[in-house]
Amino acid sequence: MQTKSDIVHHYLRPKKKFPHVWCSGCGLGVILGSLIRSIDALQMPKDDIVVCSGIGCSSRLPVYIDFNTLHTTHGRAIAFATGVKFSNPRLKVIVVTGDGDCLAIGGNHFIHACRRNIDITVILVNNWIYGMTGGQFSPTTPTGKIGSTAPYGNIEQTFDPTKLAIAAGAAYVARSTVYHVDQLDKMIKGGLEKKGFSVVEVISNCHTYFGRLNKEGDAVEMLTWMKAHAMPIQAARKLPPEKMEGKFVTGLLHDEEKQEYCDRYAQLSEDLMKKTEARP
């Protein structure tokens, strides 16, 4: 029988760039494993999968896995992915991105990809900080928290990327954490199965910067915090608002059937070509 670790190794690039660039204890390893297990569970052929990313810690993920991988410019992964997918809709296109990459510099691409409902799965790794550049505050850094460019505390409001995605028109929106691995596997698998734009926000830990600057402890302490503050949506629905204070909702937050962009274009194109042929 194949063990979980056998599966993971089957999908990693042999002889390639290990050890990886991430700090020990980083949540990205969990996410890498979860993505691989989800893909394996769906038995998707490696050749048909394209993983795109931008710039940042999370965007280094594709280089380790044995798919077609496209490591692009800061914030633009979704726009590149749109070109890949629309050019060859047969391909399964996945974007791995971070909170700075996706929501600050790439915010506009994110919104418009949601609006088009193009069949791409976005795994949005939210660790509330810019890790690779050394701990600057991001669009999801909670108000009051410290970043190297918010040395007196962040005075800005934060985005809730799931609400943003739902409002902008994404078909599938979910949230999980690097602590809730089984749920995370399920959410990513669901996103991959969904025909349309799917977003899985993964709350992850950057103990190196966020944890240290805000005295929130090491990786274990941050994972413990996730365990204590995540509230599955089924339970959250039954709770009065005051009981939700300080908690965040996880699980499948939005799932909607609607026409996908590439399908719609293909239909338009087919109709036009029929008309052209019909003409003498």
Partner: peptide, 14 residues
């Protein structure tokens, strides 16, 4: 920015 990105992605896809 996105237009340039999309044509590069499309070219990678053939």
């Amino acid at each position: 920015i996105a237009s340039m990105a999309a044509i590069i992605g499309a070219s990678c896809a053939g």
